[in-house]
Amino acid sequence: MPPAPARASSRASSPWTVAPEPYDSPAATALWRAYYTEVSDRWYLLHEGHRTDPDELEREIAARTGAELAPPTGKLLLARYDGTPAGTAGVRLVDASTAELTRVFLREETRGRGGAALLVAAAEDAARALGARRMVLDTRGDLVEARALYARLGYAETEPHNDGPYAEHWFSKPLTQGI
């Protein structure tokens, strides 16, 4: 039997739960599609004035399964709001002491209710459990809400740690004291 989901706060009435989820479950797959559609459309609208071509969208969603977010070197966390799948955060080990935070996403209707901070905190705990002492991430310049969230949660902007085609801002946070 899988472990019970963690309550998102000490208040018994909190609508949030966060728990590990297989990257290929129906809920995770639906949230991946929503996430990728949103960030892809946002990029294309900003840079080319149109939404993502549907065929390209389907190819990219299929090509990026999320398998790197499976144990033993990764984990996908799924947030539920009042029991309904609402968002995700993924963690994968980059090396023995560094984890990457990825796929942080909340459905629009649940934003502004504290779920993003809960997801990131749960991802940090998952990274520590994998042995990581530091978390890194990258994001795009147009994703200003994400950049503000990471800064608010103690992530510092750093020099590039990868050469991802859409990586424009890189962040890092120690997960243990003294780093």
Rank of each mutant, 00 (worst) to 15 (best):
residue 48 E to Y: 12
residue 162 N to T: 15
residue 122 A to H: 12
residue 111 R to I: 06
residue 13 S to G: 14
residue 109 E to T: 12
residue 74 G to L: 11
residue 111 R to G: 07
residue 66 G to W: 12
residue 139 T to G: 08
residue 98 T to G: 05
residue 19 A to S: 11
residue 75 K to S: 14
residue 13 S to P: 00
residue 137 L to H: 00
residue 27 A to T: 11
residue 91 V to C: 07
residue 166 Y to M: 12
residue 158 T to N: 11
residue 146 A to L: 06
residue 10 S to C: 05
residue 19 A to G: 08
residue 81 Y to K: 08
residue 64 R to P: 02
residue 94 V to S: 02
residue 43 W to C: 07
residue 59 R to M: 01
residue 66 G to K: 03
residue 65 T to Y: 10
residue 43 W to L: 14
residue 121 A to D: 10
residue 171 F to P: 06
residue 16 W to C: 03
residue 44 Y to W: 08
residue 34 A to D: 14
residue 160 P to K: 01
residue 73 T to E: 07
residue 30 A to W: 06
residue 49 G to A: 12
residue 175 L to I: 15
residue 126 A to W: 07
residue 176 T to I: 13
residue 83 G to I: 10
residue 46 L to D: 04
residue 82 D to E: 10
residue 12 A to V: 14
residue 112 G to R: 08
residue 177 Q to E: 15
residue 136 V to L: 12
residue 63 A to H: 00
residue 139 T to M: 04
residue 32 W to Y: 10
residue 2 P to L: 11
residue 172 S to M: 01
residue 68 E to A: 13
residue 162 N to E: 10
residue 153 L to A: 04
residue 108 E to R: 15
residue 178 G to P: 01
residue 112 G to C: 06
residue 159 E to I: 04
residue 24 D to S: 13
residue 89 A to Y: 04
residue 21 E to V: 08
residue 19 A to L: 12
residue 60 E to L: 15
residue 101 L to A: 10
residue 103 R to S: 00
residue 128 R to M: 08
residue 85 P to E: 02
residue 140 R to P: 02
residue 108 E to G: 12
residue 107 R to F: 09
residue 33 R to H: 13
residue 12 A to M: 02
residue 64 R to S: 12
residue 85 P to W: 00
residue 115 G to S: 11
residue 10 S to V: 02
residue 140 R to A: 15
residue 91 V to Y: 00
residue 27 A to W: 04
residue 38 E to Y: 06
residue 12 A to L: 14
residue 103 R to K: 06
residue 28 A to V: 01
residue 2 P to I: 11
residue 135 M to E: 13
residue 121 A to F: 07
residue 38 E to Q: 03
residue 80 R to D: 05
residue 51 R to K: 04
residue 40 S to H: 01
residue 119 L to W: 09
